[in-house]
Design a protein around this nucleic acid. Sequence first.
RNA 1: GCCGAGGUGGCAGAACGGCUAAUGCGGCAGACUGCAGAUCUGCUUCCCGGGGGUUCAACUCCCUCCCUCGGCUCCA
Length: 497
Amino acid sequence: MREVRVHSTLAGKLVPLEPRVPPRISLFVCGITPYKPSHIGHARTMVFFDVVARFLSHLGYHVFYLQNVTDVEDKILRQATEEGVDPKLVSERNFADYLGEMNALGVRSVNLYARCSDYIPEIIAQIETLIAKGHAYASEGDVYYSVGTFPTYGRLSGQRTEELQPGARVEINPKKRAPEDFALWKSERMGPTWESPWGKGRPGWHIEDTAITVNVLGPSYDIHGGASELKFPHHEAEIAQAEAATGQSPLARIWMHTGLLNMHGEKMSKSLGNVLPTGEALRIARPDVLRFYFMSAHYRAPLEFTGPASFEEAERAYQTLEGTYQRLREAAARLAPSAPADRGAEATPSWLDQVRHVEKTRVPDLAHDRGDQVTEAMVASLCNDFSIREATASLFAWSSEVNSRLAAEGDRLTFEEVVALMGPFRFAENVLGLFSHLGGTGNDTTLSKLVEMALEARTRARARKDYAEADRIRDELHAAGIQVEDSGGKVRWTVRP
RNA sequence: GCCGAGGUGGCAGAACGGCUAAUGCGGCAGACUGCAGAUCUGCUUCCCGGGGGUUCAACUCCCUCCCUCGGCUCCA
């Protein structure tokens, strides 16, 4: 298996990915707190880790991707109180919306979404272990982690507890022995509560993640992902909890942190109120375009959102790639040997089955085949700390090459040659998750018969130089959402996105 | 104050100790076209935050300063 180099926050540099039990890779990513609709900052992180999981699978790893859902949290309760509804309703509604958005964006690699509320016994057990081992103490119905008992606390973020400013953003809590201690259990009477050895209450913020990962993935797993704002204190607390409770280190072999999505120079944050909810973004931009937009920058760098213009720019760039791929698909559909009529929208078109068949049997030729070389370059980019932007740069160059070849020798290409030309696009489809909403190749549907009829009339009009009539037909098709293009003596039409 | 991530052309953003500093968007011109669109080709001179240093050679390594963003126990 080829070597993947990943930036590890703990090491502060690129390190080779060396799974505990190859070829298995366990991946945990901090999920959302569904108290409000999620925003495109979350979506950026989730799309990125979806590519990570897809790519590692592509390389032959067996990836298990776990994400938690913080469905027990004070903000959910506050939101529910405001709306006068049950907190469960708030979290389930927002989580369902989130899943719908992730689905639209093509995020499909998560194997398990684990709800905090399903792990309360595990959480309580982990807290009891921490108390028994002297790392935590009960205080008036609360339980706190005693940070001083964990010497390496702060290593991930480079923080030293004595340099922190207690009370910088959160009020100082008199129940704590030391200001840096954090809550494992909070006594509560309002809202959803659970019985515990310390009385009725709710888990603290950090404990659910380690209770879930230790139980699902074990005391040590391969990759922990999350946005960089979570580095401190959240991830620091996770390490302290899990490693103290299990006695095993490291909790995660590689910590990956994604850069934030900035809204006009400021981070997008639900609490700041300057958010663009993913659902709203999906009404402005097509899902594929939104996904493509997130790939504009390297995952660790901040990404600047400058308003809808950002999406428009991505839309135009994406159309270039999409257009080329669609031309290739049309060529493949036309050239597929013994291609019967399209079996309709539900079935896999037979030409696509045949493309897959050829892909399975052909041997990549890195010495001579340009498409194979480009795919290889894309793989190499992703192996180098998931440099997606570099991979798409290769794809743009390839797009030009393909268009030139299609123009020069489109009619002489064989099916196998077209499949080879598709290679880098197929890679982008499978690994980057692009092109998942491409339309059909326009054969044999009712729509295509009607469009063909109109275009025949237009061709006749053009032949007798009745351009007024020809343009009228084109304009009417355009108004109906059909894009007509004349090139090389042929007429091509597509359904506009 | 402390910790972290950044500062590259009109905009978004890459990379590498050494080749014209990717790629995309935008702009300009040409080819193709009845026109439009798509596509292709070329151009878009002055872009590496400031100042030192190391080196034959620095955007890249080191030091220092400035600026932006994030975190300092609510946040993807």
